[in-house]
C-alpha cells in the first residue's frame, strides 16, 4: 500500500505547515488526501498514513473514526450528505431527505445497488443561511436544495 506521488507531495506540503517535531498535526489532511485518492480509508491506508507521519497506528485510527467526514467503510462513488438539523429542516418546503430516499430507493446510511450513491443524514455544516444544504463528496457544498435541484445534481453526477 502506498499513495501516489501527487498525494504524497500534497501531504508533504501539509507537513511543512507545522513545526518539524509536530508532524502528527498533518494527520487530518493526510487522511483527507488519502481518502480523496482511494475513495475511502481502508485500514492499510490508515496504517500507511500513520507510518508516514511516524505516529501510532491506533492514534491515526482514532482520528479517522472521530471526524465524520472520513469514511472508514467503503461507500458509493458519490457521498451525499444532507443536513437535517433544525435550521435546515424548518426551511424544507418539501422533505428533501424523504425525496432523496425515495428517489435513490435507499435509507440514510445506505448505498444504492449500483454503488453510485451513498446517502447520509448530516449535521450542521455551518451554512444554515443557504438552507437546505447538502454536501457532495466532502468538498462540494450545494445550497438552497429543492427537488428540482436535486434531480439536476443527480443527473450531473456520473
Amino acid at each position: 500500500m502506498t499513495l501516489c506521488a501527487e498525494s504524497l507531495a500534497k501531504i508533504d506540503r501539509e507537513i511543512a505547515k507545522y513545526p518539524a517535531d509536530q508532524k502528527q498535526s498533518a494527520v487530518m489532511s493526510a487522511l483527507r488526501i488519502a481518502q480523496q485518492e482511494k475513495g475511502w480509508l481502508a485500514s492499510d491506508t490508515i496504517q500507511f498514513v500513520a507510518d508516514y507521519l511516524g505516529m501510532p497506528r491506533i492514534a491515526a485510527y482514532e482520528v479517522a473514526t472521530f471526524y465524520n467526514m472520513y469514511d472508514t467503510q467503503q461507500r458509493g462513488k458519490h457521498k451525499l450528505v444532507i443536513c437535517t438539523n433544525l435550521p435546515c429542516r424548518v426551511t424544507w418546503q418539501q422533505d428533501v431527505g424523504e425525496y432523496l430516499k425515495k428517489k435513490l430507493e435507499i435509507n440514510y446510511g445506505e448505498t444504492t445497488e449500483d454503488g453510485k450513491f451513498t446517502l447520509i443524514e448530516g449535521e450542521c455544516m455551518g451554512a444554515c443561511g443557504d438552507a437546505p444544504v447538502m454536501i457532495v463528496n466532502n468538498h462540494r457544498m450545494c445550497s438552497f436544495m429543492t427537488p428540482e435541484k436535486i434531480d439536476q445534481l443527480l443527473a450531473e453526477l456520473e
Binding site: Q24, V27, M28, V63
Partner: peptide, 27 residues
C-alpha cells in the same frame, strides 16, 4: 500563518478540542 482544515466534528469549535485537533489528535 497557515490554514488547518477540520473534518467534521462540532466539538472542535471548543477551543481546547480545537487545539488537540490541531495537534493531530481526536478533538
Amino acid at each position: 500563518l497557515h490554514a488547518h482544515h477540520g473534518f467534521g466534528a462540532y466539538i472542535c469549535g471548543e477551543e481546547t478540542a480545537l487545539l488537540e485537533s490541531l495537534e493531530g489528535k481526536k478533538g
